[in-house]
Amino acid sequence: MPDLRPQGLPPGYRCRSATTADAAAIHGLVAACERALHGRPETAADRIAAELALPGLRPEYDTLLVHDGTGGPAGYGWVRGRRARVHVHPAHQGRGLGGALLAWAESRARQAGSDRLAQTVPDTDRAATALLRAGGYGPLVTEWLLEIALPGEPEVPDPPAGITVRPFRQGDEQAAYQLTEDAFDEWQPRRKTYEEWARRTVERAAFLPAASPLAFAGDQLIGAVLSLDVPGNDEGYVERVAVRRDHRDRGIARTLLREAFRSFHRLGRPACTLWTHSGTGALPLYERLGMTVRRSSTVYGKALGTD
């Protein structure tokens, strides 16, 4: 079993692997970090639970939860393949926990056979950015959180001729998986299994079929918007947008997004948000729909040598 003790853990802290029973405590830690950076929490509790239960993740090896002397969560690390997450509670920052967790993440990734590691950091988090850059990480892509206000009911254009639109319903899962993974294959580093994809989308408690419109050409699914109703957040959130390649540039994505916006407006949501990044080339589409950038993050990556 790999040694879970990170090098350089400051005195007074102890660590152990996380379990699914820790999801609420980890969410509280992440929410505290987001509140300090952005003024409010943004990550849903069910996202943490879903990530701890992803197929192939071995929490006893791939997670690390750091506690302070009172037993409260002070830091958290998560590694899966070439991706890592590191969070340090604002009350415990500046003490070396971030560096210790980052070193642990790199060591764990090497043990698991990964030759690279990447982490996403908000551009407003200057301390984390400096830590990564000092550790040899360089920027890979930019991510943007986009928003649109919904003061009135959005107009929804008619779909193109031959295309029908309806909300997501039970039985659409496999077709939606195939469509979205085919679309994301153009830029994502690896294709997700159905089990992993479902845990991140349609099996989440926050998944909202009523605001997840699908587009069909005959009986073939050719477009999808998958949305979440995140507890504790009064805004709508679009998790996935995909249109089959041979049906792009026909206004299908615009129609589906407008349909999702209208659904969120009818649910009383004052705004809707979604993430996109520079690898997709989709930013101009969202800007034409009236969405604007609320904030940005950068994905930093590093080639891993041997310990």
Rank of each mutant, 00 (worst) to 15 (best):
W144L: 07
T19L: 06
E235A: 14
E153Y: 04
R269C: 04
A118K: 11
I252V: 07
H27D: 05
G8P: 12
T292L: 10
C272A: 08
V230G: 11
P209Q: 03
G251I: 00
V79S: 01
A23S: 07
R116I: 06
L64F: 01
R262A: 03
P160F: 02
H247G: 09
L221M: 11
A50G: 01
M291A: 00
A21M: 11
G138H: 10
L179M: 06
E51N: 12
A32Y: 04
A149E: 13
A210I: 05
P209N: 03
A84L: 03
H92Y: 03
L285E: 01
F216T: 02
A149Y: 04
G8N: 13
L117F: 06
L52R: 10
F207K: 05
Q111C: 10
L179D: 08
R199W: 07
R240A: 14
A175I: 02
Q220K: 13
L146V: 03
L117C: 04
T129R: 15
A128D: 09
D68Q: 05
L285S: 12
E143I: 05
A105I: 03
P231A: 02
Y13D: 06
L102N: 09
E173L: 05
E153V: 02
R294E: 15
A32K: 08
A130F: 09
L64M: 00
P2I: 02
L146A: 07
S107E: 12
G281C: 08
G138F: 10
H67D: 15
S263M: 04
L65C: 10
R245H: 14
P209F: 01
R95D: 10
V30E: 10
W78V: 01
E195G: 04
